[in-house]
Design a protein around this nucleic acid. Structure first.
Length: 250
DNA sequence: AAATCTCGCAACCGCCGATTA
DNA sequence: ATAATCGGCGGTTGCGAGATT
């Protein structure tokens, strides 16, 4: 009574060895939140950073847990005057595209920031905007808080989700081709079978790393290494948190 | 104890691009 | 060159279990 497609799905999402089941760790949760803000609802891409979790699992976890948490967080953080503000997180409406945490970017539904390059650019934005690195409050800092009240809330908030609000610097992200996103990120997962495609994707990633290095910016591999290293020590995590203004939730 | 509601998760659906015949 | 098939993806639904009324 089952078609081949249904069997494949059952295998990849449930029966396949190595799948981690059960509760998501705070580290995983943090990664999902950040990657979702970076990539949008690109669950396969996000799952490539959590090799033991399936995209379906992550998608479900987002829809059932994290979305609620974020909504709750938003309502707690958002003063009444902010209602209707373009920057507000509106989960009741469109949730597709990069930053579908709905940091409304100037993007169309069919075009969104590519994953790897997107992350790279965002990191650059973070690095520039982080007050802990750049001691002066640069007025041109892309990631700086647009509203003083918001900044205040962020700095005093005790919720682990506050980092989401620091994603305002995503406005700086350029629109990228959908195809680029796919080709690059499939490489990070385990699903590529065709060696030629993998080689192609490898080249893409190398080029991106090269670009990062050429620009004298922190290499993307630094973050990727951290993201992939579930056993990161608390000290390392704290160091990166400080660098990127991430909350100490991992 | 029964009815109703809520929640979480596996599965389904439709679409798209790649591959194969 | 073209149609059929396969594989992958994101959005959505259906159902079982537990909680609540």
């Amino acid at each position: 009574m089952r078609c081949s497609k249904s069997c494949r799905l059952r295998w990849t999402n449930y029966l396949r060895p190595g799948i981690k089941r059960g509760n998501f760790t705070p580290h995983e949760e943090g990664m999902i939140i950040h990657l979702q803000a970076l990539l949008g609802n690109k669950w396969a891409a996000i799952a490539s950073y959590l090799p033991q979790r399936t995209d379906n699992d992550i998608k479900n976890y987002w829809n059932t847990h994290l979305k609620k948490k974020l909504r709750k967080f938003q309502s707690a953080m958002e003063p009444p005057s902010m209602a209707g503000d373009e920057k507000s997180l509106d989960f009741a409406e469109s949730e597709t595209g990069a930053g579908s945490s709905n940091l409304k970017l100037n993007q169309t539904s069919s075009s969104y920031a590519s994953s790897t390059e997107n992350i790279s650019r965002l990191l650059q934005g973070w690095m520039r905007s982080s007050p802990k690195i750049n001691n002066n409050n640069n007025s041109d800092s892309i990631g700086s808080c647009s509203a003083a009240a918001n900044c205040d809330l962020i700095s005093h908030g005790d919720d682990q989700l506050e980092s989401i609000l620091s994603f305002e610097n995503m406005k700086d992200v350029a629109l990228m081709e959908k195809s680029t996103s796919k080709a690059t990120f499939q490489d990070s997962g385990e699903k590529i079978i065709n060696p030629e495609r993998k080689q192609k994707a490898d080249n893409n990633n190398n080029n991106i790393d090269d670009n990062n290095n050429n620009n004298s910016n922190p290499p993307l591999s630094f973050l990727e290494k951290w993201l992939l290293d579930e056993s990161s020590s608390a000290a390392q995590v704290e160091e990166i948190d400080q660098m990127m203004e991430l909350p100490s939730i991992f």
